[in-house]
């Protein structure tokens, strides 16, 4: 997905001279084409994420689109106050891109796990929060990010994540995409972990349970209509995210259900259980360890359906 992102950004940058890439010495093997083609729109500030974000803000306020880019929490939590006070408060045209959402960098350890980012970014006014699930979504989200005038947080996958969508997608900021129709329950997912949700839904379908599978690629603004419709039409909702339990997709969906009085619903949030993922292992292994793989999700489908 990161390759698709970088390729798409480069293509857009060829047409849009406002785009500047601001790095903090991360992106080896990925950013060189942009750096070589647009040396005057490429800045490596060194290992200095606060300055990266401040510089991007200054660029963004003077008619440019500034894209900051790093891995995991480096361009978010390290410089959170710059994102809040500088970028978001001034509504600067800055895009904050992370590579490796969730536990993409599994065995590198907790410092490289981005498992609170959705909650923290979502808490800031003036920012759009996106996490595409597969390469078609990643490409569409990159275009949407640049077209949106203002701060955007873009949580990108790390590797060649499999496609989740079955065909062409109609991607709009803040508008969930239904991958599969169904009326027994709704499975909302965000990001590449959606492949586990898809496999679980397919397995359950063989046992006669029709899951509505929905990609919530934009966490903020969130698609309230899709959530209310899911509650009213399916009566059961499971959320799946590669994120801590607090404040992410599950919390966002729960807020909408409460706000809209759509509480007559069975509801389950699947996420890391408010812990740091301290075990050593790949993304897939860690998902399975915390029951966030297809088998774990399938079990929750049966549990919520009472079968």
């Amino acid at each position: 997905m990161r390759k698709a992102f970088n390729k798409t950004l480069l293509e857009i940058a060829r047409e849009d001279s406002r785009i500047n890439l601001v790095l903090a010495d991360i992106g080896y093997g990925e950013i060189e084409p942009f750096a070589n083609e647009f040396p005057n729109r490429y800045y490596n500030v060194g290992v200095a994420e606060q300055n990266m974000t401040g510089v991007a803000c200054g660029l963004g306020m003077e008619g440019n689109i500034a894209v900051t880019y790093s891995i995991a929490n480096f361009p978010t939590l390290r410089c959170l106050e710059q994102i809040r006070n500088d970028v978001c408060y001034h509504d600067a045209n800055v895009k904050i891109v992370i590579i490796g959402g969730g536990v993409s960098y599994g065995p590198l350890g907790v410092s490289h796990h981005s498992t609170e980012d959705l909650a923290i970014m979502r808490a800031l006014p003036n920012i759009v929060v996106m996490a595409p699930c597969d390469i078609p979504e990643a490409i569409a989200a990159t275009h949407a990010m640049i077209e949106h005038d203002g701060p955007v947080y873009y949580r990108c996958g790390y590797k060649n994540e499999p496609n989740i969508h079955n065909g062409a997608i109609d991607f709009k900021l803040g508008k969930a995409i239904t991958v599969e129709e169904g009326d027994d329950l709704t499975l909302f997912f965000v990001g590449p972990i959606g492949i586990e949700a898809k496999k679980a839904a397919e397995a359950a379908r063989k046992r006669g349970i029709k899951t509505r599978l929905v990609s919530m690629h934009t966490i903020k603004p969130i698609d309230r209509e899709a959530i209310v419709a899911a509650a009213r039409e399916t009566g059961k909702i499971i959320t799946v995210e590669e994120h801590n339990l607090s404040g992410g997709l599950g919390s966002a969906v729960a807020e909408v259900l409460a706000d809209e009085g759509a509480l007559d619903v069975k509801f389950k949030r699947m996420a890391f259980p408010d812990i740091y993922v301290g075990e050593v292992g790949s993304q897939e292994w860690l998902r399975s360890l915390y029951n966030l793989d297809a088998a774990g999700i399938e079990k929750e489908i049966y549990a919520i359906c009472g079968v």
């Binding site: 005057n40 800045y43 606060q50 300055n51 974000t53 401040g54 510089v55 991007a56 803000c57 200054g58 660029l59 963004g60 306020m61 003077e62 008619g63 440019n64 500034a66 106050e81 710059q82 006070n85 500088d86 408060y89 001034h90």
Partner: peptide, 22 residues
């Protein structure tokens, strides 16, 4: 707007880059 220290100079760098290019 500022108020938390250490924010002004990085943003000024970004503006300086942008205006130099213009």
């Amino acid at each position: 707007s500022t108020g938390s220290l250490g924010h002004g100079l990085p943003v000024c760098c970004g503006k300086a880059l942008a205006l130099k290019k213009q």
